[in-house]
Amino acid sequence: MAVVTSPARHRLGIAARTLAAVAGGYALAAFTTTALALALRLPRSEAVMVATLPSFLLFAAAVVWAFAARTAWRAWAGILAPTLAAAGVTWWLHGGPGP
């Protein structure tokens, strides 16, 4: 937790981190799952299993990161960047930019 002088900013920081942890963490887990499921090229049920099983671990890691990062900005950046990357991979594998 970044300790800032004013309590209002402190609360804002906690709110931002909580949002990053819950919404950002879930988005990261979800997009990683879709990217993995598409990238693995396994039989359907097995691909879903392998892609979804570790997702909750990733979610938890994102939550830990959100509250451990030095500033709320870093917390957001550290979650948003891999989420966007996973979303990009998903979009690419799921049809991509079109023919």
């Binding site: 979800a30 799952t33 879709t34 993995l36 099983l53 909750f56 799921h94």
Partner: peptide, 24 residues
């Protein structure tokens, strides 16, 4: 706790199945 999440993972994290279901 982890297996609790896994048991209902198609409810909590259905997206892997969704993208593949569309493909299939």
């Amino acid at each position: 706790s982890y297996s609790a999440l896994v048991i209902f993972m198609t409810m909590y994290m259905p997206w892997g199945g969704r993208v593949l279901a569309e493909s299939a």
